[in-house]
Design a protein around this nucleic acid. Structure first.
Lengths: 158, 158
DNA sequence: ATTAAACGATTAGCCGGCTAACGAAATATG
DNA sequence: CATATTTCGTTAGCCGGCTAATCGTTTAAT
């Protein structure tokens, strides 16, 4: 089918949701990284700690599933967290393959700092959102996440 | 105001916009990477090509600004694109510091493939969004992007 | 003209994602 | 029991972000 001429065969990328999502994504990750850097953490480490605060002693495979991450990613992150003494691992007795990940005292203590930074993120950067937007966004974001994760494991953790 | 006890001192991360954004982010990037991988590209390369398709012969510093990326990031990406023969660089005559980035024939030709993949991304994964959501999302995402980029360079490219 | 400052690009090195390939342990299968 | 398959974890290596440090070029100051 032949319609129009110049404008026709090019997608206006800048207006697609996928494009906008990518741009938000990059910007947000940078901000998150900078904020968590203030308390000596990297962005990804925060999310792993979040899971452990909610349930200490998870196996790596559990963490991978809950965070929707690949096993090697979790492996590397844990190595980093061990180096800064926030977690420690223990081979499981019953199963020689698994390692359980436990928070150290410092790991537990980190929680308040993360809470504080998180609150700042939420208030500082999202100040311009009105009430309606604050209500709609969580819904939309959850929907998007399910769309992109295939909805298979999207609701496992609640 | 005092409500509840256990729940009190812990932020419900899972409901903050920042948290949800991070989760969407990771999931989306993975999907994007997988889709573009089908046509031999990586996610980031697509966005750089997008800019060149809109204006060929940009300098690296221009690309960095338009993509909101750091200079070294662009430098590495271009190196990768040169290796797969999609772009080539030329030292600028007037200014010995700058290098201009030009699409090769293959670089131009890639456009249709990217369009096709992009369309699939937009349709396959966002099928569950209703009309209202499709209208609201672009607005919200743009707002978020401006919030996280400091709104300084957020509207430079349009 | 000389020197200082700004600018564009690169290199090195880090974290956060991934896949592929492998090793070790547990479980199925025969 | 022996073998095959699954499972958990790690290593290696890649891309996509970043910062810090460096180099060469250009421009501004003196």
């Amino acid at each position: 089918m032949k319609t129009g001429a110049v404008m026709e065969d090019e997608i206006i990328f800048q207006k697609t949701i996928s494009y906008l999502l990518a741009r938000v994504t990059t910007a947000y990750k940078t901000v998150l990284e900078r904020h968590m850097g203030l308390i000596g953490l990297h962005a990804g480490q925060v999310f792993l700690l979040l899971e452990l605060w909610s349930e200490n002693g998870l196996r790596q495979v559990d963490l991978a599933r809950r965070l929707s991450l690949a096993a090697p990613t979790v492996s590397k992150m844990i190595k980093g967290l061990i180096e800064i003494n926030l977690v420690e691992i223990e081979r499981e007795d019953g199963d020689g393959r698994s390692t359980r990940v436990y928070l150290t005292d410092q790991g537990h203590a980190m929680r308040d700092d993360v809470n504080a930074q998180w609150l700042e993120l939420e208030t500082n950067y999202l100040a311009d959102l009105n009430e309606t937007e604050r209500l709609i966004l969580p819904e939309l974001l959850t929907k998007l996440r399910k769309a992109y994760t295939g909805a298979a494991d999207a609701d496992e953790d609640q």
